[in-house]
Simulated scan of single mutants.
Amino acid sequence: MNLFGQSFFANIPPVVKNLLIINVLFFIATLVFGNMGIRLENILGAFYFNSPYFRVWQPITYMFMHGGWAHIFFNMFALYMFGPAIEYYMGSKRFFNYYFITGLGALALQMLVQAIEVHGILGSYILDTSIQYNISPANAEKLRDIYAAPMVGASGALFGVLVAFGVLYAETELYIMLIPIPIKAKYAVIGYIVVELYLGLSQHQGDSVAHFAHLGGALFGYILLRAWGMHRTNDF
């Protein structure tokens, strides 16, 4: 057997493999069209439902868009590391459904939080351009972020994958960067979620990460695992 001739994708199950390929193709397309002056993230990224930039395809396409090299690298690395174990456990069809449902759930929670923020500023969940609002510069900036900044990335769906790994392979020990001792998957995932919740609630200035999308992916992932009756396994 020619080990050196073996394909990089040889041991990757089909859904994870195709997700990796599609994400990379979308990223390449973003770079190519960006050089032509066309910002694909403004077409395929997900905008707030009341934004004039919102389109019906965005809840799906946003999962394949990424904001830079580091963004896509770490997301695809996480998918490559944890996705195969979950796909082998669930089967390809169910994993496909799980991935996209958690991605949609991520966007749903993010939009819910945005709607609450919009209501807190305007007293309504939608911006009526026929009304003259009297709001502070800080709130005006918040509204611009909500209405004009697209959400991109596979992170929401990947938080669903991480939660699945933390539940199904709870006792597996992981080595986390900058932490010198191994940590069981269940504790690592819980810790990560707690950090995301803190960052989402604290809303540090300049933080453009959609933390509640991450939490939405994790929440919908956990709900699906419970609904499908999936439990811990020791096979890892």
Rank of each mutant, 00 (worst) to 15 (best):
F100V: 09
S92E: 02
A164R: 02
I22R: 12
L143A: 03
R226Q: 10
Y147H: 04
I21Q: 12
G103C: 08
H214P: 11
G206A: 01
L162H: 09
L104D: 02
G105N: 02
Y80G: 07
N234W: 15
R232P: 13
F82M: 09
P150C: 01
L107S: 01
N139Y: 10
Q203H: 14
N42W: 11
P182L: 04
I176E: 04
P13I: 11
L178H: 14
R232Q: 14
G221K: 01
E173W: 00
F8H: 05
I181Q: 08
A157Y: 03
G191W: 03
I22W: 12
A78Q: 12
F74N: 07
P137G: 00
I38P: 15
R144Y: 06
K184P: 11
S92V: 02
I181S: 08
H119G: 05
A138I: 14
D235A: 13
I22C: 10
G120I: 03
Y89V: 15
A29P: 15
G67V: 02
L112Y: 01
H231E: 13
E173L: 05
S130G: 00
S155Y: 04
L40D: 00
V32A: 10
W57S: 06
A154R: 04
G123E: 01
R94C: 03
T172Y: 08
I116T: 02
F74Y: 14
Q110E: 09
L31G: 13
P13G: 05
L143I: 02
P59E: 02
F27I: 04
M177W: 13
I43M: 13
V163D: 00
I38E: 06
A70L: 14
N2F: 04
V24Y: 12
L143E: 00
F33D: 00
A185Y: 05
P137A: 00
F49G: 04
G68H: 04
E196N: 14
S7I: 06
K184C: 10
Y98A: 05
F212A: 08
Y80F: 15
Q132E: 13
F165D: 00
H211T: 05
